[in-house]
């Protein structure tokens, strides 16, 4: 573990901004809310944020992305890959978002071999931060994701006048090479541990059982119609809970021509299983036509289906869906707890 005075950390970040070929982005405040965005100066960083609007997954899997351009005017059909390979240093990622990115890596890189994702992901450096503030909507501690020992290249914890920096990879240590770091003292290492433990007690929300029990709970509770109906009745099928989620990875691909059928491109855009047309297939069938089926599907997926397939509980408890659902029917902790009570009644 390394120690840097706060001003030295700021100088280091400014040095990256000035000299590193990668773009420096981080948690910042845009005047109305916390977001991950470009920063021109370390002062713009807000490492004390509680919850950002979207997670940094947008840097590897952008909301909208061109994939391929085609041109059939050429003698032979020309098709060029045209996604960006941007590289970034991303500063200030909370542990639950780091966990979410590890899950996306499994899916996009290992399972799907998705090149547009992989290039951007591997070109980027993830600098995590130990949470300082906790959103009232978050229940990460109960999901075991309010802290993490993996998934970061560097992890920064604020101490009094200094930052303690844990090294997670060679990419991370490379960033510290020219910084005037000191080795952390035993006390400082302990202070970091205390910080991480203290954060866990700041959460107001939580699931009332172990996340390990979630896959079984969902299996047993699949037919607890009263619980599912109670939430689905108020659901607007707006898809918000999907698109704000750091672990959702569905997208839709459109072919867009440039007003002639010879030249055009394919684009992908985030999609969501709550949207009515999501499960519609050619021929007019829709697998999940009923609102309640779609609403349940998301919660089944987060807590059971993805576990069955990849071994991960795909809700990291960030609370974004809870906060952004205008109908207030998306909160996984609330729904899972209610299911727990109903199954155990």
């Amino acid at each position: 573990m390394k120690i840097l005075a706060k001003y030295e950390f700021d100088e280091l970040v400014n040095k990256w901004i000035a000299e590193d070929p990668r773009e420096v982005v981080g948690a910042t405040h845009d005047g109305t809310k916390f977001v991950f965005d470009d920063i021109d100066d370390a002062e713009e960083l807000r490492l004390d944020y509680d919850l950002t609007m979207l997670s940094p997954k947008k840097y590897f899997f952008p909301q909208r992305e061109r994939l391929v351009q085609y041109d059939t005017n050429e003698n032979d059909y020309a098709m060029v890959q045209d996604w960006s390979e941007e590289s970034r240093i991303i500063v200030g990622i909370h542990p639950y978002d780091l966990v979410a990115i590890e899950q996306l890596d499994d899916i996009f890189i290992d399972a799907q071999g998705d090149e547009p994702y992989r290039r951007k992901r591997e070109n980027s450096v993830l600098i995590g931060v130990t949470m300082q503030s906790v959103s009232e909507h978050s229940f990460a501690a109960s999901m075991g994701t309010a802290r993490t020992e993996t998934g970061y290249d560097l992890l920064v914890t604020e101490l009094e006048d200094t930052y303690a920096i844990e090294i997670g990879s060679e990419k991370g240590s490379g960033l510290l090479e020219e910084a005037p770091t000191k080795e952390a003292s035993l006390e400082e290492v302990e202070a970091v541990e205390e910080q991480k433990a203290a954060v866990e007690s700041k959460f107001e929300k939580g699931i009332e059982f172990s996340p390990k029990q979630l896959p079984s709970l969902l299996k047993e509770g699949y037919d607890a119609v009263e619980v599912w109906d109670e939430y689905a009745d108020g659901c607007l099928s707006c898809g918000t809970c999907n698109v704000v989620c750091p672990t959702c990875y569905c997208f839709n691909v459109d072919v867009v021509d440039y007003m002639t059928d010879e030249v055009g491109e394919t684009r992908r855009r985030w999609d969501g299983c709550l949207l009515e047309e999501f499960a519609a297939v050619a021929g007019g069938e829709n697998f999940r036509e009923e609102r309640v089926a779609r609403h349940r599907h998301r919660l089944m997926r987060k807590g059971n289906y993805l576990y069955e397939r990849f071994g991960d509980i795909a809700c990291v408890g960030c609370g974004r869906c809870t906060k952004q659902c205008v109908a207030d029917v998306a909160d996984p902790s609330e729904i899972y707890n209610e299911l727990w009570r109903s199954v155990n009644a």
Partner: peptide, 14 residues
Amino acid sequence: KYPVCLECKLNENT
């Protein structure tokens, strides 16, 4: 077929 919220969220609006 999707509602305005979808694009609104993609744009990170409050």
